[in-house]
Design a protein around this nucleic acid. Structure first.
Lengths: 115, 115
DNA sequence: GGGGTACTCAAGCATCTGCTTTATCAAGCG
DNA sequence: CGCTTGATAAAGCAGATGCTTGAGTACCCC
């Protein structure tokens, strides 16, 4: 079993979220759509740099873009965010359940020893 | 408001999860503790390389390590995974709620127009 | 058409990553 | 004691990433 499509999508999503500027863009887009210029405004970097960040987010599927006059409004894609959450949750849940079973098992052993 | 400690933690976590080998290690650790050698076995790379991946995961807080004889067993830290999930969920929920309100608003306008 | 606005493309550059190889170290065993 | 095992440290290298500047491109208004 090699590298799957799903792997590549997760790569792209987590890579996109690993940069503080891009995470900030995601947070700001959760408050509503915005253009590249609007998104670039608060950062101490060129609009081209922000445009590149947006491209990373777009290619990861975390955001999508429309066309309106000469602007390219960006919007969040909650389904992609949900996919990332699902992946993490599965590992977390599996481990936690394992811990619960272990505790139960230890409790059983303890009970047996006391009787 | 500059770069916070929380930002740095999220950086480390999402960076750690952006590599397929490291994600695979996380999945495998969700099934139980493992040593560096055990984790390295299935991959076509040196144990040193895997050791470096594990270090990235450890520094991100996603895993922790013990000492047992000459091994350094790795275990998942579900609390850190939960922190990553929480961050994503907040953005996703905010956007989704916004969409719901928008739909409600549009429905109200529609209703008003029909009457 | 000219000029401004919003944005993308492309090249260049410093830094970071992922991996290698070699060397080192600590723990356990003959 | 020497030898093996599990793991880390350090140095080096090809390729990726984040940013810059300069040059387009597409749209809109006068």
């Amino acid at each position: 079993m090699g590298i799957t499509i799903e792997d590549q999508r997760l790569d792209a999503m987590f890579t996109a979220l690993s940069d503080p500027t891009r995470r900030d863009i995601v947070v700001r887009l959760s408050a509503g759509e915005a253009t590249v210029k609007e998104l670039a405004e608060p950062y101490a970097m060129s609009m081209q740099a922000v445009s590149q960040h947006i491209r990373v987010l777009e290619r990861s599927g975390l955001i999508s873009r429309g066309r309106h006059r000469q602007t390219r409004p960006c919007r969040l894609e909650p389904a992609a965010l949900e996919a990332a959450v699902s992946w993490i949750e599965e590992s977390r849940r599996t481990w936690s359940e394992r811990m619960d079973r272990l505790e139960t098992h230890l409790a059983c052993l303890q009970k047996g020893a006391n009787q």
